[in-house]
Amino acid sequence: MNIDQRLTTLENKIQQLELDNMLLTNLIAKAPPEWVIDSLDRARNSNLIPYPFVGINAQGSLDFYRIIDLLAKKEII
């Protein structure tokens, strides 16, 4: 395999990885789970929102949602 073929192969792999990354990001970055909606409303009313930066176009990570839910259940917010 010569250099041009290797370069083309690598470019194709990069494009495939970028597409895979975009698809996974879109899958993960959906609306918040139902179990945390009430807790998020309480957090908004307590001025704890906007969401922290999570590195993608999402409202929050599952860890963030778990923390917000725990704070609401413990009546901290």
Rank of each mutant, 00 (worst) to 15 (best):
A43F: 01
D63Y: 09
L7E: 05
I56W: 06
L27D: 14
V36P: 00
A31I: 02
L17N: 12
I77Q: 06
D38Y: 11
P32E: 00
I49F: 03
T8V: 11
E75I: 04
I3R: 12
P33W: 07
E11R: 14
D69S: 14
K74N: 13
I77D: 05
N12K: 15
S61C: 06
S61Q: 08
L23R: 13
P50A: 13
I68P: 00
Q59M: 11
S46R: 11
P32V: 00
A29G: 12
I49S: 00
P33S: 10
L71C: 13
I68D: 02
E11D: 13
K74Q: 15
D41T: 08
T9Q: 15
A72D: 14
I56R: 11
L7Y: 05
I56L: 14
D4M: 14
I76V: 15
L71H: 04
R44D: 09
E18R: 14
G55C: 09
N45H: 06
F53Q: 10
D20C: 04
D38E: 15
L27H: 14
N47C: 06
K74M: 13
R66T: 02
N12D: 10
Y65R: 02
V54S: 09
Q59G: 10
T25K: 12
P32H: 04
G55T: 07
S39A: 15
N47D: 14
I68L: 04
L27R: 15
I56T: 12
A58M: 05
Q59H: 10
I3V: 13
A29F: 02
E11W: 04
I3M: 11
L10S: 10
L71A: 10
L48H: 10
T8K: 15
N57S: 13
K30P: 00
Q5V: 09
R66A: 12
N12E: 15
P33K: 08
N21Q: 14
D69V: 01
R44K: 15
L48Y: 07
A31N: 08
Q16W: 05
L24H: 12
S61M: 05
Q16N: 12
K13P: 01
I76F: 04
E75V: 09
E11M: 06
V36Q: 01
S39I: 02
V54M: 05
S46I: 00
I37G: 01
L40N: 01
P50W: 02
Q15W: 04
I56Y: 05
L48V: 01
I28L: 12
I14K: 11
L70R: 13
S39R: 02
D63L: 10
T8S: 12
A58W: 08
I37P: 02
A58C: 13
N47Y: 11
K74F: 08
Q15P: 00
L24M: 11
I37M: 06
N26P: 01
L17C: 09
R44G: 02
A58Q: 03
M1Y: 05
M1V: 03
